[in-house]
Design a binder for these strands. Structure first.
Lengths: 135, 135
DNA sequence: ATGAATGCAAAAACTTTGCATGACG
DNA sequence: CGTCATGCAAAGTTTTTGCATTCAT
């Protein structure tokens, strides 16, 4: 029940918000741009404006429902904020996105921030890779 | 001699390119947006167009003279491609950028890419931090 | 009913491109 | 001199905003 998901996040359960959340849940691709989501909605004959998609995604981000990434330049992509944190590996040749998690790296990051007198709030780690040739 | 630096990179040593490279070398802040560089030039009464700044920075990036980052959304920032690689820590309260390097993290990244059947080509790691309160 | 959310269109922010002119080697 | 590079202005992208209308509670 996505209605509940929105209320718990402190947001009114409006039509556009429900539809956008649904696209995020149902899409094969976990990582979608605002334009991607807008296209899904138009194709499904849902009447939602692009401006609303941007506004709603920003609210979702503030509410912790989604995370925003800026992998390469140009535009942002959004993904549902799944309970488990993870980082991303992007294949430069195929565009595939693989999620991974390294507790060692997570710990090292906290230690490094700490050593510089800071507290780690968040981080962004993206590995750019290409298929390994079997030599 | 920045003239030489450009020739070695395979670029003609034109006025605008020398001036932009100079701004990158002389600026206190290592990380500058195209607009930042343009502003420096205008203040120094140098007659260089913003479009040229963008074109030259892109050429510099392709030639390996600078690196482009997309820390937050909206705009790119550029820094001279110093010989030693490093990652970045951005303070959310002051905007300060601190550079750091962890050989452990570098190694773990290669291992992770490898474990997924990929070869690590590049990566982006940014820690978002805030000043640690002394409790 | 009432304040919040939406759609549309216009604007803003950032970056790229077309074209005539000017500069490097 | 022949390109290649530049400046300017115009166009392209992505994202935000103003405002009248509609919707959720």
């Amino acid at each position: 029940m996505e209605h509940r998901e929105l209320k718990q996040a402190g947001l009114r359960a409006t039509g556009p918000r429900l539809k956008i959340l649904d696209v995020l849940h149902e899409s094969d691709d976990r990582h979608l741009s605002a334009e991607d989501i807008y296209r899904h909605l138009v194709e499904a004959d849902e009447d939602v404006g692009l401006a609303t998609v941007y506004r709603v995604l920003t609210q979702f981000e503030e509410a912790g429902l989604v995370r925003r990434h800026n992998f390469e330049s140009g535009h942002s992509v959004f993904e549902l904020n799944s309970p488990g944190h993870h980082d991303h590996m992007v294949c430069l040749e195929t565009g595939d996105v693989v999620e991974f998690l390294s507790e060692d790296i997570e710990r090292l990051q906290r230690e490094i921030a700490d050593a510089h007198g800071f507290e780690l709030v968040d981080h962004s780690l993206v590995l750019y890779v290409r298929p390994r040739r079997n030599e």
